[in-house]
Design a protein around this nucleic acid. Sequence first.
DNA 1: TACCTCCGTTTGAACGTTCAAACCATTAGA
DNA 2: TCTAATGGTTTGAACGTTCAAACGGAGGTA
Lengths: 343, 343
Amino acid sequence: MMPEKVTIADVARRANVSRQTVSNVLNSPDLVREETRERVRQAVEELGYRVNQAARRMRTGRSRLLAVRIEQTQDGMNVFDRFLHGLTESAAKAGYRVILYSADDDRSEIATFDDLLGAYEPDAFVLTGTHYGDVRTSWLAERGLAFVTFGRPWGMPEGGDHPWVDVDGAAGTAAATRHLLDAGHRRIGFIGWPEGSGVGDDRRSGWVRALEAASLTPRTKDAEARTNDAEDGEAAGVLERRTDGSAAEGEVAARELIAAGATALVCVSDSVALGAMQAGPVPVIGFDDTPVAAAIGLTSLSQPLSEAAVRCVRVLTRLLEDDSPDKPDHVLLQPSLVIRRTA
Amino acid sequence: MMPEKVTIADVARRANVSRQTVSNVLNSPDLVREETRERVRQAVEELGYRVNQAARRMRTGRSRLLAVRIEQTQDGMNVFDRFLHGLTESAAKAGYRVILYSADDDRSEIATFDDLLGAYEPDAFVLTGTHYGDVRTSWLAERGLAFVTFGRPWGMPEGGDHPWVDVDGAAGTAAATRHLLDAGHRRIGFIGWPEGSGVGDDRRSGWVRALEAASLTPRTKDAEARTNDAEDGEAAGVLERRTDGSAAEGEVAARELIAAGATALVCVSDSVALGAMQAGPVPVIGFDDTPVAAAIGLTSLSQPLSEAAVRCVRVLTRLLEDDSPDKPDHVLLQPSLVIRRTA
DNA sequence: TACCTCCGTTTGAACGTTCAAACCATTAGA
DNA sequence: TCTAATGGTTTGAACGTTCAAACGGAGGTA
């Protein structure tokens, strides 16, 4: 039983109207008289007609496809697959499908943009992992292509003003730090990523901000450089470390911070936090609420990923279907602290 | 700078040939004279021509799209995202792209097949999570549609003979059991899933097989029912438990098995194994080698997911491009034991 | 009555590709 | 010398949709 192809012409014949009228019922129902509209709708129903996207695309240049890069998972402690799942679902609700591609770096990703545009003409791209000097966004913007990034355009003051959705990392680490302050801790360390990571610097800034709000001086490297002696009676070393994001370096950093007097640790990621937990029985808070955090009882910051996905799709549909807004949409969502054993 | 559309006609003009000749260079190069072919190739290069898949698809009915369902991740301890990544990459190498969809159950998945076929005409489907009485495969097979499953057609002796790729779960648990036997254990328990899960029953059978090969009687429920008294001096209870797959039930099961005399445990999944680890300092082996296993030092069985993805694509390309083989391809891959702290 | 407007509908063409058939040299066979 | 076969190329049509323009009837206005 081969699946029979039902075309718009079949529907038209059945409903005793022309092809164009069927097309209008589907795309601009208000152009068609009530009675005719119903008749056509019924014919569509009875025949199980579905629009052929290839043919539609040929005429309109619209594919109803969103292209998303699938990220390579290093240690698997990431957030991308949950985001992708949400994206697939909310895209489907809006009548779009997700098409995947992979790329090793920005250059090859741009080459893939080109490939995809030629072959499948996705209506829009969803980019993740934005960073300083991101050439992908400017490439797309120059060509007037629709896209949204999950992540802010770090370090692009003016030129890079494009639509984005992001989670407020600083607010997250600030909440984590406050949680530890409330528990009585005064010497709270931070384990981060190398300087120059937009996401990393943002998360670090929340730790700084929360300490300052509590009238404590964050013992950053800068602060240390300015005042070389301890403020009070306690030994006061630098209470922050930068790592490559691995658990191994997280553990080393945690040992050093504990030796320097830290009594609790805020970490830039679950991976680093996992390492930090091995350094001793000190309260630790991670970031991303990965399955690993749930498994080992690590307190962590959870990103609202389904919501982020929904908002990405909403931003894009506004861009594609309504007349383009003057100002690009910017959406900043709040993470939430999931409290478990470690803090 | 809008991206200029280059069509096959542009290339033809540039190379001083007809459209069809360009098409032949692309699709059946051997039909075209060497010299002409080169000229056309150069024109393609210079103009940056890329075939328009929508137009091609309209004529040929081929979309070069593989449809894959994105699985909902319950506790995030799954294997799917790594498989999907591999699939995207190997599909791209073969000139295909992956299009995603989601569905809540088999019925709605079939409805989505129908939708997708009408709208995007994917050339093939990749199904995961096969199970007893899987209606999806028969639906596709009845319509003569191309597909491959990652997972065997459990409990379908004759009718369900379709192409599949799978990992030999029984071989995995057998290897795990042998590993524990080699370490001197004689009372090795198994924590599984409810009866009737194809994958679960398969993994359980490896444990049974390895014990029998070592001339030990696996203390299954069946065995217990047959002989009601202990074989030797030791207290001999049932050494297997079924769980819903959660860590919580895994822990309960582990406590019972240890109380019944088990000195080591083979688990049907990392999730269950994670729970089992909480029950006490007994060697535990999980299945799937998820990021959680790596994080907590759980010895586990690793599935060759990239390889599985490559083989899925190969099976499909053979199905789609070569003349269809008489016998559907069946590929069974071997998992490997990743030894960590817990065993 | 003649003309205009508006609404709902139909008609023809076009999107970019490939199929099927036609075409044209050239070479081979009788 | 004529016919047939072969290799390489071109031509016209078709895939299923939507755009742009044309059409025709009902109602209003002069």
